[in-house]
Amino acid sequence: MQEKVHVSGGTALSEQDVHSGEIFMTEDSLDCAFAWDTGVAINRYLTELKNGRIIATECRHCNRIMLPPRLFCELCFKPSSGWVYINDTGVVNTFSICHVHWDASRIKEGEKPYLPAVIEIDGASAGMGIMQLLGEVEPEKIKFGMKVKAVWKPENERTGSITDIKYFKPI
C-alpha cells in the first residue's frame, strides 16, 4: 500500500523573510479600550479596600468564607449569606520570581523582578487564595507558608483598587 502523507504545508518564514519586503504583510491594532462594571460584590470589596479593610462573603451552606467576595457560592449555587470582615494578614501558598513583563520582554538589568504570590488571607476559608504581590523581601528569602501582612497605601492615595494594598510583606 502506498505510504500516506501525514504532514503538508506550514511554510516557515524567517526573521529575514519578514524584513525583506518580499513577504506581503499588513499590520493593524485595535485601538480600543474597555471599562468594566464592578458589580455588587466587587463594588463593596473595592470600597472597603479604600477604607483599609478586607471584606469577604460567607456561604453558610458550604461553611465557606469566600475571597474575593462574590454574590453567589459557585459550589452550591446559592446566594451568599452575608458579609464578613477578615484580616489583612495571611500565608504564602505559592510564589514566583518573574523576570519578564506582560509582553514577554525581559526586565532591565538591575530592575527588581515581580514577586507574584497566591496568599491565603487569615479569616477566609483554608485554600481561598488571592493573587497579590510580595514586597520588602529578598526573592531568595521567600518561603512557602511564610506569614505576611498587607502594606497599605496612605489613606489619601487609595482609590478603591486592589493596588490600594501596595504588597504583602513578611511578618
Partner: peptide
C-alpha cells in the same frame, strides 16, 4: 444577602477603567 442586595442608584455603580493600561497590542497578517 445577595438576592436582596442591589445597586439601586446609578451613582453608586462603579466601573474599572484601566486607563493607560489599555491593551497595547497589534497584529501582523
Amino acid at each position: 444577602m445577595a438576592i436582596l442586595e442591589r445597586i439601586t442608584r446609578n451613582i453608586d455603580n462603579r466601573f474599572w477603567d484601566p486607563g493607560s493600561e489599555a491593551f497595547p497590542v497589534k497584529n501582523r497578517y
